[in-house]
Design a protein around this nucleic acid. Structure first.
Lengths: 104, 104
DNA sequence: ACAAGTAGGCACTATTTTGTGCCCTAGTCC
DNA sequence: GGACTAGGGCACAAAATAGTGCCTACTTGT
């Protein structure tokens, strides 16, 4: 397996989850609280959201900031590293739109 | 789910298989016979290769050309539509390379 | 007569990914 | 002292994906 192909796979490992692109998409717009993400993507279960966020955190894409306050408050945002995904997401998105438009 | 996020998911549905990006990658270089692909990606089982090729064909990304000759000969290539994936793959690949380089 | 090479098909199993349901914490409001 | 809040954990069940093994048809070489 040559380097070019496995680099594509590496990228897909990061953004390839069912909800990860959606999370990244929202976080590209700005910081979100956990509950906000849940409202924005009601089809993702809480567990899935948590799980995918953890993975993205582990991979250095999102930052998780816990405010030690009374009702817990946790904010998620893209790390600088995560922001380097922007061009990738843009291409993916552009292609996806064209694809959906020309739907047979 | 807004249109931007679901377009990303639509794109991922096409190129998101375990072997699809690899297949697309090789076909971007040129037409391949089934057996050639097998040799280039020995970790994919024959079944997986066939399956993923069928899906890519169904989605209009690859063309399958059967030559009615004695030992069967089947050639796969990207359709013009498949070639529109080039920029997407390039970004994905660029990001993936940087990602692997900066591996912690 | 028989093995090899090509491009698969089909049934079944294994692995991975998603989803469900139920539980916790610690203040605070009533 | 019960309910509610926001974020999350854990065990398990279901579904999607991937992998294995064995089978076909046709022809050429031995």
């Amino acid at each position: 397996m040559n380097p070019a192909e496995c680099s594509v796979r590496a990228a897909l490992n990061i953004i390839g989850g069912k909800w990860k692109p959606v999370i990244i998409y929202y976080l590209m717009e700005g910081t979100r609280r956990f509950g906000e993400l849940r409202k924005e993507m009601p089809d993702a279960t809480q567990k899935m959201l948590t799980q995918q966020l953890r993975e993205l955190e582990r991979d250095g894409i999102v930052a998780r900031k816990v405010h030690q306050v009374v009702p817990p408050k946790v904010e998620y945002s893209l790390t600088p590293y995560g922001r380097t995904l922007r061009p990738v997401m843009r291409e993916l998105c552009k292609w996806g739109e064209k694809h959906m438009a020309g739907k047979r």
